[in-house]
Simulated assay, not measured.
Amino acid sequence: MLNLVILLGFLLATVVTCVRLSRADLDRWHQHPDIADPGDLHGEGSFHCARRIAAPEAEVLAALKENALATPRTILVAGDVADGMMTFETRSAVMGFPDYTTAAVKDGLLVMHGRLRFGRKDFGVNRARVTGWLDALGPLTEPL
């Protein structure tokens, strides 16, 4: 029995180490979110949303960047305000699982796509994070 507990502990430590040290394939994650109309799309392990903007693109993206980087365990991994598209990585507190959120402005529409990297179900964390960032933008975006 003790051997089984030791083996399970070793396997858990190996998985956690692999997840924490995993590198992002930015060609895969830094892609323009594909939504053409305002609205929300909730998928298994992901959340897409689009809102019309009520301010200049650079102002909206700068505010979004500030709010995103204020989120615990979140870093900018690709793009910037000047590029019109940014991808953020947010890691879970305990296991360090990475989620990726890409935000872009195109044709007066702020489009965001939050999705998990490992697993299939995110238990609503991507939706909560993305809608929290949207709420923080306040009057810079138009409500649905």
Score class of each variant (00 low, 15 high):
Gly124Glu: 10
Gly39Pro: 01
His48Thr: 06
Val81Thr: 02
Asn126Gly: 12
Thr131Ile: 13
Gly39Lys: 04
Thr131His: 12
Phe118Gly: 03
Val77Gly: 05
Leu41Glu: 15
Phe88Lys: 01
Tyr100His: 14
Gly43Trp: 11
Ala93Val: 08
Gly43Met: 10
Phe118His: 10
His113Lys: 11
Ala13Asp: 08
Arg129Gln: 15
Glu59Met: 12
Ala70Phe: 04
Val60Pro: 02
Asn3Arg: 14
Trp133Cys: 06
Leu76Arg: 05
Leu140Tyr: 01
Leu26Thr: 13
Ile75Phe: 01
Ala36Pro: 05
Phe123Cys: 01
Thr17Pro: 08
Gly108Tyr: 04
Pro38Thr: 00
Val16Pro: 03
Val125Ile: 15
Lys106Val: 13
Tyr100Glu: 02
Phe118Asn: 02
Ala136Arg: 10
Arg115Gly: 02
His48Glu: 04
Arg91Cys: 11
Cys49Pro: 00
Pro98Lys: 07
Gly124Tyr: 06
Lys106Asn: 14
Thr87Cys: 07
Leu26Ile: 15
Asp40Phe: 07
Thr14Val: 15
Val94Asp: 03
Ala136Gln: 09
Glu59His: 11
Pro139Trp: 07
Arg20Lys: 15
Ala24Gln: 00
Cys18Thr: 08
Asp135Trp: 07
Leu61Phe: 06
Gly108Glu: 02
His42Lys: 14
Pro56Phe: 02
Leu12Pro: 00
Arg120Met: 09
Thr14Tyr: 12
Gly45Thr: 09
Gly84Asn: 08
Lys65Leu: 11
Val81Glu: 08
Leu11Tyr: 13
Glu57Val: 03
Gly79Tyr: 08
His30Cys: 12
Gly138Gln: 13
Thr87His: 04
Ala62Glu: 12
Ser46Gly: 02
Asp25Ser: 06
Val125Glu: 11
Ala82Phe: 00
Arg115Cys: 03
Phe10Gln: 10
Cys18Val: 14
Leu144Ala: 05
Gly132Ala: 11
Asp37Gln: 15
Thr101Gln: 03
Leu21Ser: 14
Gly45Val: 08
Trp29Ser: 06
Met95Ala: 12
Phe97Thr: 03
Phe123Tyr: 14
Ala24Trp: 01
Val15Thr: 13
Arg91Tyr: 07
Met1Gln: 05
Ala93Gln: 10
Thr71Pro: 09
Leu2Pro: 02
Thr87Trp: 06
Leu12Trp: 07
Ile53Tyr: 01
Ile35Pro: 00
Leu61Met: 01
Asp27Ser: 15
Arg20Gly: 06
Ser46Trp: 13
Gly108Leu: 07
Leu7Met: 14
Asp135Ile: 08
Phe10Thr: 14
Asp135Glu: 15
Leu116Lys: 08
Leu8Phe: 12
Thr14Cys: 12
Gly43Cys: 03
Arg91Trp: 10
Val111Lys: 10
Gly124Asp: 04
Phe10Asn: 00
Met1Cys: 02
Val77Ala: 09
Arg120Asp: 09
Asp25Phe: 05
Leu116Gln: 12
Asp107Val: 08
Val125Tyr: 12
Gly96Arg: 02
Ser46Ala: 11
Ala55Asp: 06
Ala68Trp: 11
Val60Asp: 02
Ile35Asn: 00
Pro56Gly: 06
Arg115Leu: 04
Ser22Cys: 09
Leu69Glu: 03
Glu66Arg: 15
Ala68Cys: 10
Asn126Lys: 12
Thr14Arg: 09
Glu57Pro: 02
Leu41Cys: 04
Asp40Ala: 10
